[in-house]
Design a protein around this nucleic acid. Structure first.
Length: 421
RNA sequence: GUGGCUAUGGUGAAGCGGUCAACACGGCGGAUUGUGGCUCCGUUAUUGCGUGGGUUCGAUCCCCACUAGUCACCCCA
């Protein structure tokens, strides 16, 4: 116990941290390009926010939340996603006052008590965006294209974008009834899961993988045929906009999102080699959430992407960046007499912004040279007793093995000169 | 949460119910006197083979539980 992480969590070690920095760098560049601004919200919120925001009957809320009581008796929950928090922050800080449209993005840990699997963790990291205050389908298109751009920027191919419309509070209940009517006389033949879905969320029956359920759902009315005029129009426009900017997509009338707050647009980027965890990026419109959280009715769209999954996907296509250590100078100091002058030199080099290392363990010269090599040092500065006596250092270029003797008083300048040339 | 599979050193892994737990990589040291990357040599799990029980004269290899990972389902990022 003492030496293992809790189930479903992971250390990100120095040998892979560059992958995360790489992703974050790409994300920040991209968001700057699209005009989304970073927000950081607390890792935990009042439980009620998620209950209201995500929906009490969703799996996330029913069985995946890390909820506890703090010492003041408040019910606190580690955030299972960031949209509700972003909306809360938007309302609390009255971000709507600055602008009619607020475009936010976030990167951070989320927590869900799931059974862990590759690509599914109890603490995982998401990058997501939220555009709050715009109902035009152009906004949906922008958000989707940002998601597509993100994956494309990373070089990832063979990703499929699926889109759907899940309707609004006007037309979804109508569709729901149609569905229930359709499955009513088939109820007994549905699998157990679907029987419970029948009341709670009949839309979910549509993407059940049970063969019998699949058969039974042949000929079912599609939601896209039952949308109200407004939703149908919105969906229609979205498709045009996506085509106009060359974002490929497939219509998937059975695409359903797991969180209650979605309205109209739902979309998902799938990368099938990841198996059961192939949903790499998903999102949609949530026009009712802001009001649900106590704000004025405000339309919004967003998405979230699982960074672990993105990394897994990149790995399958060998798109992960290499870890390049850049050490400019390695000081090889030999003998006690040389250690302190070497240490002073080390300090001076660093004060001139030169990445420098040295060995403290008193290893042999050969061993120190190996260290220099392992750290990819461009130069080795050799300081032995001879050099100290003569006040001269031997500077070895590790790439071409050329060496030169440099007097101490010009050493730093010479190194700076060499490094910059 | 349900079901299947797996669990050997820093890593990838071989192995048998019973004399030293292969091999490769990595790490460390060395190959005549102060010099790396290639090559070669040595060394690197010292009552040990996820943890705890059990079967057995004896278990890393058999059984059970737990834990963890993994796959599918559920769901989702």
């Amino acid at each position: 116990m003492l030496t293992s992480v809790p189930r479903g969590t992971k250390d990100i070690l120095p040998d892979t941290i560059h992958q995360w920095l790489y992703l974050e760098e790409k994300i920040r560049e991209l968001c700057a390009k699209y005009g989304f601004n970073e927000i950081r919200t607390p890792l935990f919120e009042h439980t009620e926010l998620f209950l209201r925001g995500i929906g009490e009957t969703t799996d996330v809320v029913e069985k995946e939340m890390y909820t506890f009581e703090d010492r003041g008796g408040r019910s606190i929950t580690l955030r299972p996603e960031n949209t509700a928090s972003a909306v809360r922050a938007y309302l609390q800080n009255k971000l709507y006052a600055d602008n009619n449209l607020t475009k936010l993005f976030y990167i951070g840990s989320m927590f869900r008590y799931d059974k862990p699997q590759a690509g599914r963790y109890r603490e995982f990291h998401q990058f997501g965006v939220e555009a709050i205050g715009e109902q035009n389908p152009l906004m949906d298109a922008e958000v989707i294209s940002l998601g597509a751009d993100f994956l494309k920027e990373l070089g990832l191919t063979d990703v499929i974008l699926k889109i759907n419309s899940v309707g609004c509070p006007k037309c979804r209940p109508v569709y729901r009834e149609k569905l229930q009517a359709f499955f009513k006389d088939k109820f007994e033949h549905l699998c157990k899961d679907c029987q419970s879905r029948f009341d709670r969320n009949p839309l979910r029956i549509l993407d059940c993988k049970n063969p019998t359920c699949k058969e039974l759902s042949v000929g079912v009315p599609e939601i896209t045929d039952c949308l109200c005029d407004e939703c149908a129009d919105h969906f229609e426009h979205l498709q045009h906009h996506l085509k106009a900017i060359g974002v490929d997509f497939v219509l998937d009338p059975r695409l359903v999102r797991g969180l209650d707050y979605y309205t109209k647009t739902a979309f998902e980027f799938k990368y099938t080699p990841l198996g059961a965890q192939s949903a790499v990026l998903g999102g949609g419109r949530y026009d009712g959430l802001i009001e649900e959280c106590g704000g004025n009715p405000t339309p919004a769209v967003g998405f979230a992407t699982g960074l672990e999954r993105v990394l897994l996907a990149l790995e399958t296509q060998q798109l992960l960046p290499k870890n390049k250590e850049k050490c400019t100078v390695f000081i090889v100091a030999m003998g006690d007499k040389a250690k302190e002058p070497a240490f002073k030199l080390l300090h001076e080099l660093r004060s001139k912004n030169i990445a420098a290392l040295m060995d403290y363990a008193g290893r042999s010269m050969k061993a120190q040279m190996k260290q220099a090599n392992k750290h990819n040092a461009q130069y080795a500065i050799i300081l032995g007793e001879d050099e100290i006596d003569k006040q001269i250092a031997t500077v070895r270029n590790m790439n071409d093995s050329e060496q030169m003797e440099i007097p101490f008083d010009t050493l730093i300048d010479k190194i700076i000169f060499e490094v910059n040339k």
